[in-house]
């Protein structure tokens, strides 16, 4: 997934979005092509904890909120408000420093940050890891809502119930390669784990399944 976002260099393959091939060498290219990545390690990779909420939200979309090279704080607040309200963020104010929020609310800010860039493909790496059950449900509901709007979502998860509950299509990856592609009708915990572990039904490896609600995204390895 980091290869799609341009952080690690892919060993082979081409990337197509909606039928067009594109080259992505850096996260800047990825964002310009409408691909965004919500990283797994929220504290380390997702949020700048020392900055206020609104600055975190607008960080990748500053070109949208600034005019002739200068930031417009009013625009920033408007953008941040729009997306954090959509995610039902609970915070005293958008001025509040990110580090004072709970894990679930930080995750909402990180997702809001990426939605504000109006992406075509959103990659969520373990989006519900380490957040409270209420926020978890909110994130799931929100993902379904986004998929209904036509956004392509790739969720990376190692929680089987989550994969079973959310996916239209599951790709099981093992050791950096695609082990299997399963459609919703073929899904069952047994098949998932079997593919994830390799051969035998007694597999013990963790299943990592990217999965998508995907209109028009194709990845060719």
């Amino acid at each position: 997934m980091q290869a799609i976002f341009g952080i690690t260099r892919p060993s082979a393959g081409t990337l197509h979005i909606g039928g067009d091939a594109c080259t992505i060498r850096s996260p800047v290219d990825a964002i310009a092509n409408g691909i965004v990545y919500v990283p797994e390690d929220r504290g380390k990779q997702g949020a700048v904890l020392g900055l206020p909420i609104y600055q975190n939200v607008t960080l990748p979309s500053l070109s949208q909120t600034s005019r002739s090279g200068f930031l417009r704080l009013a625009n920033e607040f408007a953008l941040a408000r729009k997306y954090t309200e959509r995610l039902e963020l609970r915070a005293a104010s958008l001025d509040q420093v990110m580090g004072n929020l709970s894990g679930g609310n930080q995750q909402k800010v990180v997702i809001a940050k990426w939605l504000a860039t109006k992406p075509r493909v959103i990659i969520l790496d373990e989006p519900t890891k380490g957040i409270d059950i209420g926020s978890k449900a909110a994130v799931h509901a929100f993902m379904a809502e986004l998929a209904a709007e036509g956004l392509a979502i790739i969720m990376i998860s190692s929680e089987i119930p989550e994969i079973l509950g959310m996916s239209d299509r599951v790709i099981v990856m093992r050791d950096g390669l695609i082990a299997a592609e399963l459609s919703r009708s073929e899904l069952s915990p047994e098949t998932l784990v079997r593919h994830a572990a390799g051969i035998g039904p007694k597999g013990h490896a963790a299943g990592i399944g990217p999965k998508g609600h995907e209109p028009g995204t194709g990845m060719q390895p």
Binding site: I7, P39, D41, K44, G46, V48, L49, L51, L59
Partner: peptide
Amino acid sequence: GNPDAAVYAG
């Protein structure tokens, strides 16, 4: 504040 997050933010 967070170089890693800055990279992810492009």
